[in-house]
């Protein structure tokens, strides 16, 4: 397995663990599909909880998410969030 794949898996797992926690669910994170809506019938991540979650993600993954994440970015699915975090991981800051 490549380093990039490892990193993808690490981010994917951390994001899913946190969205499950934020939604106060007791399902295994691996059961969450990549295209699961962040705020839908299963996951219930609201804007406020989302912000705190981003900061926890930074702590867990030891990354700094970009400042311009704020402007005009809308997150619909788990994969959207994973993608943004991966870009933050890949781009040296």
């Amino acid at each position: 397995m490549t380093t990039a794949q490892n990193r993808h898996d690490e981010v994917n797992e951390a994001v899913k663990r946190l969205v499950v926690l934020e939604s106060r669910l007791s399902i295994p994170p691996s059961e969450v599909a990549d295209d699961e809506p962040l705020n839908g019938n299963v996951l219930r991540v609201n804007s406020l909880g989302f912000l705190g979650m981003l900061v926890r993600l930074e702590d867990e993954l030891d990354v700094t998410l970009p400042d311009d994440l704020f402007a005009g970015t809308v997150f619909t699915t788990v994969a959207d969030l994973v993608g943004v975090v991966l870009r933050a991981v890949e781009v040296p800051r």
Partner: peptide, 18 residues
């Protein structure tokens, strides 16, 4: 926060303030 709304989420605050 209310649980009644669903749909996409957006960051409402610069991350540094969070």
């Amino acid at each position: 926060t209310p649980t009644t709304t669903s749909g996409p989420v957006a960051t409402g605050l610069p991350l540094e303030l969070v």
